[in-house]
């Protein structure tokens, strides 16, 4: 029997070296040899990866492969988890985000995050969006704040649907609207990078399509890192795709290439549905 790509049948250390080009010109975020530990357990194993400007990069991989963990390293959301330790360098525009002197609050304003389950605050739609600008002191007058809220909701494609009920609770919206509200809330602080942790996994196909359309538009202004379990979604949305496997970054490449002709056997097995 012939083999498609020359490989050993067992996965040795050599096979864990990342395949494909991990660097980009003028990256927004530069990760070098990032390891993450939960206590004694190693969750991420030496990931080196650049995240470009105005690109959507998708992270795919089986559950527990570390893609979400890696995503959360990028704005230090892992800080809140006890026993979580990150080594290696993560540079945002050349600034080490794990620098002891760096304040995590402005970092999170720069690198926003959208979660798997829509999690609006149990407050009004207006308050949800206004909260970020308010705590960061981005606006000084009420009318400025109104403007920021409107602009954010417009960018998130939600303005027309909610402009007449800004004072109603955000939790009363439908799932897809809630998720777009969460995106609007993130945009309102003016981030450069938006991290998305399976943003559509709790949504129905129509809501998913709307959120995807939104992500596609947002690419013009932001770098977007999206973790997804849907390969079709990764293929639709992203320009580059990274495949994680048991804490290793196995392969990075242009999305077209990853989905037609992955170079690594593990990537191939995963995306063709031969995993496990």
């Amino acid at each position: 029997m012939q083999t498609l790509i020359k490989q050993q049948s067992t996965i040795g250390a050599a096979d864990r070296r990342t395949v494909g080009r991990v660097t980009v010109e003028n990256p927004r975020i530069r990760c070098r040899n990032v390891h993450v530990y939960y206590g004694e357990k190693r969750a991420i194993n030496g990931v080196t990866l650049d995240i470009g400007r105005n690109e959507v990069i998708a992270m795919i991989g089986p559950s527990g492969c570390g893609k979400s963990t890696f995503l959360r390293c990028l704005n230090r959301m892992n800080d809140a988890i006890d026993g979580c330790r990150v080594t290696g360098d993560i540079l945002l525009d050349g600034q080490d985000i794990y620098d002891k002197r760096l304040d995590v609050v402005p970092l999170r304003a720069q690198v926003g995050i959208v979660f798997q389950k829509p999690n609006p605050f149990p407050k009004s739609i207006y308050e949800n969006v206004a909260y970020g600008p308010r705590i960061h002191g981005l606006t000084s007058t009420r009318s400025e704040l109104d403007e920021v809220v409107e602009l954010s909701l417009q960018k998130a494609g939600l303005w027309d649907e909610v402009k007449d009920r800004l004072n109603q609770p955000g939790t009363g919206l439908s799932g897809g609207q809630q998720q777009r509200l969460c995106i609007a809330r993130t945009i309102a602080v003016g981030p450069e990078v938006i991290l998305m942790d399976e943003p559509c996994s709790a949504l129905d196909p129509i809501a998913t399509a709307r959120v995807e359309a939104l992500i596609d538009e947002l690419r013009e202004h932001y770098s977007i890192v999206i973790v997804t379990h849907s390969m079709q979604q990764a293929a639709r949305l992203s320009q580059r795709t990274a495949y994680f496997h048991l804490g290793d970054l196995i392969e990075v490449g242009m999305t077209n290439q990853i989905f037609t002709n992955p170079r690594h056997r593990l990537t191939e097995d995963y995306i063709t549905g031969r995993f496990g």
Partner: peptide, 23 residues
């Protein structure tokens, strides 16, 4: 209190204090 609320607040840059007292 669901952790998602905490994450949401932390995720847009609220400090731990603000997260606790506002949300």
């Amino acid at each position: 209190v669901p952790p998602s609320i905490r994450e949401a607040a932390l995720g847009i840059g609220a400090s731990r204090m603000q997260t606790v007292f506002h949300h």
